[in-house]
Structure formats: structure tokens, C-alpha cells
Design a protein around this nucleic acid. Structure first.
Length: 880
RNA sequence: AGGAGUGUAGCUCAGUGGGAGAGCAUCGCCCUGACACGGCGAGGGUCCGCGGUUCAAAUCCGCGCACUCCUACCA
């Protein structure tokens, strides 16, 4: 072959463009359910169509890509389904803000025009997200891309709803729900976030008894306006202060209403405040329960937009926060105020709009959770689905064990319309289609469809099977469901993972995935969570532009240790880039010395070649087992240390003994060339899941490879054989070279001076004899027989044998004595600690024999080394 | 209130029972024919604290301290 002119550095951007296109053209990631191989499937956690991808997405998708590329190369029939989520409430909020920014009124804009506009927005965002994913280098099967509002997926959602309804697991009812007055929709419990440590106030006022003269009962609240909906005052049944008042009534100061004093031991803590609690059943979750226990009227005081409604008399029409002030003023005016204290509280806010959420009595659709939570719990308990890292199981369990019914209806315009129809009398017909509903209602009955849409997660829950064609089935579904692993962030274990489990078990009878890998949170360089409001978000594309996709991915993979957050650090990316540069330089070296190589040339495999071959096999084994256990960082670390620490630092240097020694045969040189190319072959495959573009570029350049590395088999440790003798032989070279280098470093001896290394021991000299050239290349040293001991020498010990370097006139003998003293002090400590350990009878009796033997050997070696160096030091000291 | 995680070199982090590791930073020497985005060496740590189990603890157990986070409650 002709020598390729390798540029001085690797160009990650050119490679990314080139290979993305080549892979797309060759359709290498288009899966075929009928192709051979065990199934391996991943569904992407569909990003919301609310904007662009952040670092968490980049991490998650890189890790999924590592897995899918690894398995694809390893012979599995692998598919990775990409797609996006319509993200009902989040998207509606984003697009609504756009409309309002144009000075338009959202409600007047209208549902139809709005929906049309969101579809346009969806197109834009989808392109953006797809582009970002491609820049990261993901190997999704784009022909199978899905969107949660695709017709097939709508069908799945309808089937989900109808099936659960038929099983009595979905019902419609009036309950207290979380209401977002800004978005004017119901929310599930999970969509409400608690804002902690809000400085509020605890406001106290008095209710006077109807027939008690001026007897009063003092209650306190953080939401004074809710007193307009009070229908009771509760006290503890055993509280001596109020026991006699139970059953009596107090007078509402503003509205013509008499309010009973009830006894409730569950709610009331007599120690807290006055021991009296105002009860607003329609606007407080605890009060709602009290109301049910005591049959209290439930008075709704709020309009949907958060203003006070008609029952509030003079306060009607006011916003709730204005009404709060007005109610306080009025109570003050009437002389009922009994105090106002600062109070730290938590405030429930809508996850999306940020509005303060109000508990509101409302008719909504619910999923009955208790019957479906059980199987989902059992599936993990019994190991059908496994969490990695395992501790996340607890999070999953804890939530499921205290599950409450799930409010799934949303008063939004963007989402899956609920498949329920009403006739004029309000009868409900749940059906897959209008026709089916009509058939149920009877011919000629006028039906109107439910206006509400479903909670987005009600559809996302189907993702692992709806993307494969459920409920219609088909080859994809048969081949790839259930999926192999779901990779996601811990914060959506409840929202999504648990709900996919419910849905999978209910609808397909199977868990949706075998493993759930929970990845880390990416924080900024200061350890803070990245967020738009803080402005510390790092755009993955900016990072890729700066460092290249391969280095970016390698960094994420290196960071991905289980059970720990990632604190972003640019220096780590820089290090990854240096790693790619290092590999590139090694490749250049290979071509400089091996461009004429041809696989058919006769070649001889020497000990260095055998060594790197076996070491490659060891690295392969470690990287494979790391990937198998989702220990991504270990896989990256092994690759790094093998490539840099063994291949570049040692093997490359050793090949110089073939290339730069004119006495060597061509067969020997070809052996080195072959080993270089074949090691690069293995490296390209090993690194491919982590660094797809660079590995493909390397693969393409290698003279003996064909096709794409992305479809080449992943290396197996067994392909590289074993050779303990070569390992030992090279280990000896490494030991002696390191010793010589240390002395050179400490004595500041230039490499331009060849150092004689004198050894009396014939056996060691014999072992080193074949490696004379290696001594020159690696240590600039020459081994010779020690016949006469010079006066000034530096001494070191290899395998218990004394080696000396004559330093007469080069270095001050005092310096060497000092150096030896330091070494001896260290050895002395070693020896005494080892002796102490071995003299402990408990240790020698109880520890495993191989461990004890290991320490005995260490002690013997340390002693020998000590004695040898001590003798040498003594001789030197005499010469001083 | 309950639960989880974290605490190891100046910094960012590996390391789940057998003499403490990597990268960056620091300090020497070296632009040696792949690479100065590099090479060769060096220094640097009561592994948060205290107890316990064990022949042996960074690692297992208990208590405590500090920082994160999750869930629940909050008249």
C-alpha cells in the first residue's frame, strides 16, 4: 500500500462529518428484526420538545450509545429507538409564553390556532434535537424515530385508557386535586414542587360562639382567605380547654354561616398553637379528610383562575392574594385579629408554571393505583427488573408503597384527548373511537368528546412498547420487547420508570426492561446543579465544538462512576483530547515505520510482540467486564491506561529495537509492524463505543481492515492468547529500565550519556542479553559484566541482584550515599512492618496460605534489596 | 420526621477485607528521528472523627460531625 500522509493532529470535526454521513449512507444502524443475533434493545428517554438538550441528555445518550455500539459489535441484533415527547404541560407553557410575548391573549388565541402553532414549534425543536444527538454521535435507528403524538402512538394511548377503564382501574370523580391557577389545569402530586423555607406568617383570628356570649375560639392560618370556605373548627376530643365546646357552633364573621366545633383526634395536635384548627374541606388535603369524617359541607371559594368566586360576597372577583390582604383587613376592622407571627413554611408550586398551587375540589379522571402498584413492586422484588446502582430500588419501593390515586386529566390544549364521550344527560361512554362510543350510546344520541387531555406521562408510560408497534404487535415488538436496559436520571424514577412498569405489566404482561441504569447528575464546576435560572448551563454542542465529539464522549464516560454526581471539569475534557492526540501520534509513528507493510509479508513474532498481544487481551477482558457491569468509568480508564501506559510507553519504544537497529531482519521488522497494526485494530474496536468517530478514522487507515469498525466484531480476550514467559521477560525489562531511569533522574544525568550497568550475576546478564538494544532505546544503558568494582558507583537492585552504575568523576559520591540512605530508610520501614505482620501468629495461622506466602516473598525481596544496598552504601562511605 | 448519597493528595475523582491510586496542578531534568497537547523522574495523604468486628479495615458494623438530595408533614 502507499503511505498515507497522516496529518500532524487528529481532526475530530472532519472525522465526525465524514463518518456520520458514511454510516447514514450505508444504513448501518437500521435494524432488521429478522436478522440473526440475540435481541438487544434500548428506547431513548424521549426528550421534551421544549428546547434543546443539556449536559444530562448528552451524558445519558452517550452512555446508551456506548452500550448499543458494544452490543451491536458483539453480535447482538441491536436496535436503539430515538424519539421525542410532546410534553403536554411543559410545551404548552413554552409556546404560550411565546404567544404572550407577542402581546396576544392566550385564551383568545384559541385551541385550534394554538395546536397548529405547537406543531410548527415541534418541527423546529425536533430538528434541533436530532441535530444535537447526531453531533454527539449516537447510533440510533432513525428510520424508527417516534413522536408521542404519532397516530400509532395515539392509538396505543387510547388502548391504554380504554383497557384500564374496562378493568375498573380508571374512574371519574370529584376529588381534591392540585390546581395550577396559571395554567388552569389539574396537576398530579408529582408535578407539584415544594418550595422550602419560605418566610410567611401565621395569622390568628377569633371565631365567637353562637350562644356563648363573648366566648371565642382562636384559630391560625397561613392562608387567611380560606376562612371564607371554613365549615368547621376542630379541636382534640380530650382537650380539657375545649371539650365542653364540642358540638356547639361559632359564627362566621362575614357570611351568614354557623360553623360546628368538631372533635378530631387524627388532625389536631393540642400542643400546636391554640389547639384549634379551622377546617376548609374544599381547599386543604387534611381538611378534606376531616370533612369526610364529619360529613362537613365542602364550599369551593375559588374560580379556576385563582380569583375568589361568588360565595365570597364582597371578596368575590379578587385575586386570592389580594383577598388574603382584604380578609385580614376586614377581620382587623371587626376586632377579630389575635396575632400574626413570622412563620417558615413550604409553598407548593407548579413544576412548570411556578404558580402557587391551590388544592381545589374538582371532577377529574383518576387511575386507581393500589391494584397496579403491587405487581410493579413485585417485579423488582423478584428480580425481573434490576436497578443499577441497586440502591435506587429503595426510592422506587418507597414511592410505590405509599401510592395515591393518579389524577390523569389535564385542562390543556396540547396532548392526547381523553377517549370519552358524553351525551346530553352527562352519561359517559369510554371507547376507542367515536363510532364505538356511538354504538354504546345508541344511534342518534348526540355525543361530545371530553375536552381534557391526558397527563403526558400516561402516554410516555407506553414508550418501551408503543414504539415497537403495540398494540398491533408485529416483528419489531416480537423481537425487541421487552427492552434490555433503560438509562435515565434518578429524578424521573416516579414520573416515568414506575409508570412504565405499571403500564408494561398491565398491558403487555411483561416488565418493559430488564435493567434500569440510573446515571449521574451533571453539575457545574462549583458543584451546583445546572439550571437555566442560574445561567450555569453548559451547552453540549459548545463543548463538542471546542474539544471534539470523541474527547467529549470519552470524558463523559470517564466521569460515569456509579452512585456519584459529576462535577464538570474542563481539564478532564482537555485530558481526553490529549489522549486522542496521543493515539494519533502513535498512529503516525506506526505509519512512518510501517507504511510498506503488507499482511502477506513474512513476519516473526518476537517477545515484545507476544507481550503486547497478551496485554491487549488482558485489557479486552477488563473493558468488557466493566461494560457488562455498567462501570463505564472503569472501561474508559482501562482503555486509557492500556493505550497510553502500555502500548505507547512501552511497546512503541520496544519496536524501535527493530526499526532502528540495522542488524535486525526484515521479518523481525514486519513482526513489529504487524503487531502495531493489529494492536491498533484491537484499540479501534475497543474504543469504538466510546469514541466512534476517531475509531472509524483509525480503522479506515489501517492497511489490513475492511468495512466499518462499527460493524466489526468486538474483541474477545480469548483471541489474544497467553504467554507468561513473555510477560515475565518484559516485566524484567520494565523493572530494570525504571531503576536506571530513576537514578538518571535523581542524578540529573543526560540521556546523551550511555550509562554502563555492571552486573556480576551471570544469570541476570544472560536474561538481559537479548534485550541489549532495548536497554539502549529505553534507558540509554549498556549491560556489562562486573569484574572490578569502581570506587564511586550508584547501586540498585533488580530481582535481588545488585546492579551498579560507575559514576567516577560524574557525580559526587556523597550524593549517592544520601540517595541510598533515603532508599534504605524506606526499605527499613518496609521490612519492619512486614516482619511485624509475619511474626503475628494470628496472621500466619488464620490468613489464607497464598496471602501469607505473598508477604513472605515480599519480605525476602525487601531484605535482599536492603542488604545489597546497605553493603553498597558501606563501600561508598569508605571511599568518602 | 423518614430515607438515600457523599466525605480519600492543592483541585476533580477512582478504589467494597490483604503494605494508599489516576488525571490536573507543583518541583527537577530533557525540544532523544510519533507526540513539548510530549518524555523521564520526584514530592505530596491521622483515606471526616470516635468506637467495634477481624490475624488484617479506606473498605464491614455502630455512634457522631459536615455537605447534597429525595419523600412526607407543617393550623
Amino acid at each position: 500500500m502507499s503511505a498515507p500522509e497522516l496529518p500532524g493532529t487528529y481532526d475530530p470535526h472532519a472525522a465526525a462529518t465524514k463518518w456520520s454521513q458514511a454510516w447514514a449512507d450505508a444504513e448501518v444502524y437500521t435494524a432488521d428484526p429478522n436478522a440473526p443475533g440475540e435481541p438487544y434493545s434500548i428506547v431513548i428517554p424521549p426528550p421534551n420538545i421544549t428546547g434543546s438538550l443539556h449536559m444530562g441528555h448528552a451524558l445519558n445518550n452517550t452512555l446508551q450509545d456506548v452500550l448499543i455500539r458494544y452490543k451491536r459489535m458483539d453480535g447482538y441484533n441491536a436496535v436503539w429507538i430515538p424519539g421525542i415527547d410532546h410534553a403536554g404541560i411543559a410545551t404548552q407553557w413554552v409556546v404560550r409564553r411565546q404567544i404572550e410575548a407577542e402581546g396576544l391573549d392566550f385564551r383568545e388565541y384559541g385551541r385550534e390556532a394554538f395546536t397548529k402553532r405547537v406543531w410548527e414549534w415541534k418541527g423546529e425543536v425536533q430538528d434541533n434535537i436530532t441535530n444535537q444527538l447526531k453531533r454527539i454521535g449516537v447510533s440510533c435507528d432513525w428510520t424508527r424515530q417516534r413522536f408521542t403524538l404519532d397516530p400509532e402512538l395515539q392509538k396505543a394511548v387510547t388502548e391504554h385508557f380504554v383497557t384500564l377503564h374496562e378493568r375498573g382501574l380508571i374512574y371519574r370523580g370529584e376529588r381534591l386535586i392540585n390546581w395550577d391557577p396559571e395554567d388552569q389545569t389539574a396537576l398530579s402530586d408529582l408535578e407539584v414542587e415544594q418550595q422550602e423555607n419560605v418566610q410567611g406568617e401565621l395569622f390568628s383570628f377569633a371565631y365567637t360562639l353562637v350562644d356563648g356570649g363573648d366566648t371565642e375560639i382562636v384559630v391560625a392560618t397561613t392562608r387567611p382567605e380560606t376562612m371564607l370556605g371554613d365549615t368547621a373548627v376542630a379541636v382534640h376530643p380530650e382537650d380539657p380547654r375545649y371539650k365542653h365546646l364540642i358540638g356547639k357552633f361559632v359564627k362566621h364573621p362575614f357570611v351568614e354561616r354557623h360553623i360546628p366545633i368538631v372533635a378530631d383526634a387524627i388532625l389536631v395536635d393540642p400542643e400546636f398553637g391554640t389547639g384549634c384548627v379551622k377546617i376548609t374541606p374544599a381547599h386543604d388535603f387534611n381538611d378534606f379528610e376531616v370533612g369526610k369524617r364529619h360529613n362537613l359541607p365542602m364550599i369551593n371559594i375559588l374560580n379556576k383562575d385563582g380569583t375568589m368566586n361568588d360565595v365570597c360576597g364582597e371578596f368575590a372577583g379578587m385575586d386570592r392574594f389580594d383577598a388574603r390582604k382584604a380578609v385580614k383587613a376586614k377581620l382587623d376592622e371587626l376586632g377579630f385579629v389575635r396575632g400574626c407571627d413570622p412563620y417558615m413554611m413550604t409553598l407548593p408550586r407548579s413544576q412548570r408554571s411556578g404558580a402557587v398551587v391551590e388544592p381545589l375540589l374538582s371532577t377529574q379522571w383518576f387511575v386507581k393505583m393500589e391494584p397496579i402498584a403491587g405487581p410493579a413492586l413485585a417485579a423488582v422484588e423478584n428480580g425481573f427488573t434490576r436497578f443499577v446502582p441497586k440502591q435506587w430500588e429503595n426510592t422506587y419501593y418507597a414511592w410505590l408503597r405509599e401510592i395515591r390515586d393518579w389524577c390523569i386529566s389535564r385542562q390543556l390544549w396540547w396532548g392526547h384527548r381523553i377517549p370519552a364521550w358524553y351525551d346530553a344527560d352527562g352519561n359517559i361512554f369510554v371507547a376507542r373511537t367515536l363510532e364505538e362510543a356511538q354504538a354504546k350510546a345508541g344511534e342518534g344520541v348526540a355525543l361530545t368528546q371530553e375536552e381534557d387531555v391526558l397527563d403526558t406521562w400516561f402516554s410516555s408510560a407506553l414508550w418501551p412498547f408503543s414504539v415497537f408497534g403495540w398494540p398491533d404487535g408485529g416483528d419489531d415488538f416480537a423481537k425487541w420487547y421487552p427492552t434490555s436496559v433503560l438509562s435515565t436520571a434518578f429524578d424521573i424514577i416516579f414520573f416515568w420508570v414506575a409508570r412504565m412498569m405499571f403500564a408494561g405489566l398491565q398491558l403487555t404482561g411483561s416488565v418493559p426492561f430488564k435493567d434500569v441504569y440510573i446515571h449521574a447528575l451533571v453539575r457545574d464546576a462549583n458543584g451546583d446543579k445546572m439550571s437555566k435560572t442560574k445561567g450555569n448551563v453548559i451547552n453540549p454542542l459548545t463543548t463538542i465544538d471546542e474539544w471534539g465529539a470523541d474527547a467529549f464522549r470519552f470524558t463523559l464516560v470517564s466521569f460515569a462512576a456509579q452512585g456519584r454526581d459529576i462535577q464538570w471539569d474542563d481539564s478532564r475534557v482537555d485530558n481526553s483530547r490529549r489522549f486522542t492526540t496521543k493515539m494519533w501520534q502513535a498512529l503516525r509513528f506506526t505509519f512512518m515505520n510501517g507504511s510498506d507493510w503488507d499482511p502477506s509479508l513474512e513476519s516473526e513474532e518476537g517477545p515484545y510482540e507476544r507481550w503486547i498481544r497478551v496485554r491487549t487481551g488482558v485489557a479486552v477482558g477488563k473493558i468488557r467486564s466493566a461494560l457488562d457491569e455498567y462501570k463505564f468509568n472503569e472501561a474508559a480508564s482501562e482503555l486509557y491506561h492500556f493505550v497510553w501506559g502500555e502500548f505507547c510507553d512501552w511497546y512503541l519504544e520496544l519496536t524501535k529495537t527493530a526499526f532502528y537497529d540495522k542488524a535486525q531482519t526484515e521479518a523481525r521488522r514486519n513482526g513489529a509492524r504487524k503487531a502495531l497494526f493489529h494492536t491498533f485494530d484491537a484499540i479501534a474496536r475497543l474504543m469504538h463505543p466510546m469514541m466512534p468517530f476517531m475509531s472509524e478514522e483509525i480503522w479506515d487507515l489501517l492497511p489490513h481492515t475492511t468495512g466499518f469498525v462499527t460493524t466489526a466484531p468486538y474483541p474477545k480476550a480469548s483471541d489474544f492468547g497467553e504467554d507468561p514467559q513473555a510477560l515475565d521477560e518484559i516485566a524484567l525489562i520494565q523493572e530494570i529500565v525504571t531503576e536506571i531511569r530513576r537514578i538518571r533522574g535523581e542524578m540529573e544525568l543526560s540521556y546523551k550519556i550511555t550509562l554502563p550497568v555492571l552486573i556480576a550475576d551471570a544469570s541476570l546478564r544472560e536474561k538481559l542479553a537479548p534485550h541489549a538494544r532495548a536497554m539502549t532505546e529505553l534507558a540509554s544503558a549498556e549491560i556489562a559484566e562486573l569484574t572490578e568494582r569502581p570506587a564511586g558507583v550508584a547501586t540498585f537492585v533488580v530481582r535481588g541482584v545488585e546492579c551498579i552504575i560507575p559514576l567516577d568523576g560524574v557525580v559526587d559520591i556523597g550524593e549517592e550515599v544520601a540517595r541510598l540512605d533515603k532508599a534504605l530508610a524506606k526499605l527499613e520501614k518496609d521490612v519492619s512492618s512486614l516482619e511485624k505482620r509475619l511474626s503475628n501468629k494470628g496472621f500466619t495461622d488464620r490468613a489464607p496460605a497464598d496471602v501469607v506466602d505473598g508477604f513472605r516473598e515480599k519480605l525476602a525481596a525487601a531484605k535482599l534489596r536492603y542488604d545489597t544496598l546497605a553493603a553498597s552504601r558501606a563501600r561508598l562511605a569508605e571511599a568518602l
